[in-house]
């Protein structure tokens, strides 16, 4: 119980974010209408993905320093779970884009960078699959992982801001410029982000433990 308190916290915050996210008042803005509520559900997917990738990088660095197999396994499962959240982010974003921008995939810099960064992490999985020798695989993929993290940050947060992007938080969209100021939305948004990050870490942790059992029973 003592060690599992954060799982309960995650569950409660998630349920709270669904109830409050659907029922609380939101700013009335043209184009967006009720879709502004996607902020509570779509954006946390990306936050969770980034945090999972960050944890993965930390364990990759730890692996290079220690050579401990557990660190390598943790790094892998964090990325595996992160990729799932990345795809959820892409899919939810496409539905939203279809109704607010008129197309699921307008060739927007933010979208394309998100797709590239997802492919980059898929390449990490492929790279691991291609190497048979365990220590070599762990070392090479750890280095790859450490390099791809900053590239992902640049792709998602820097490049889209240097050009004009449709995506909220980057430029041209009139709808979202004022959501930053709405403290009512923060009340749901931050708990939602925290809840999804904790759920993501929880799932990754389960996958890691399963893999440990799997490896030990070989």
């Amino acid at each position: 119980m003592r060690r599992n308190w954060w799982k309960i916290l995650a569950s409660l915050l998630l349920i709270y974010s669904i109830i409050a996210g659907l029922l609380l008042e939101v700013p009335r803005l043209p184009i967006l209408h009720e879709t502004i509520r996607n902020l509570y559900f779509h954006v946390p997917m990306w936050f969770t993905m980034i945090i999972l990738y960050l944890i993965s990088v930390i364990y990759s660095i730890k692996y290079l320093a220690s050579g401990d197999e557990k660190h390598d396994l943790l790094a892998v499962e964090m990325v595996n779970t992160g990729i799932i959240f990345g795809f959820l982010g892409l899919a939810t974003g496409m539905i939203w884009a279809n109704y607010t921008w008129g197309a699921p995939w307008p060739n927007d810099p933010k979208l394309n960078s998100a797709a590239i960064s997802t492919l980059m992490y898929l390449a990490y999985v492929v790279l691991r699959g291609a190497l048979d020798e365990e220590q070599k695989r762990a070392r090479i993929s750890a280095v790859y992982n450490i390099f791809s993290f900053p590239v992902m940050i640049v792709l998602l947060f820097i490049l889209p801001r240097m050009t004009d992007s449709l995506h909220p938080g980057n430029g041209g969209n009139p709808g979202f410029n004022s959501y930053d100021l709405d403290s009512g939305m923060r009340l749901v948004f931050y708990p939602a982000v925290l809840a999804w990050i904790l759920v993501g870490v929880w799932i990754a942790n389960l996958k890691y433990r399963l893999r440990l059992i799997e490896n030990n029973s070989k």
Partner: peptide, 13 residues
């Protein structure tokens, strides 16, 4: 939605 998510979280647990 609350029922679905409670179910899923319970399953995870």
């Amino acid at each position: 939605m609350v029922i679905i998510f409670i179910g899923l979280l319970f399953y995870l647990y």
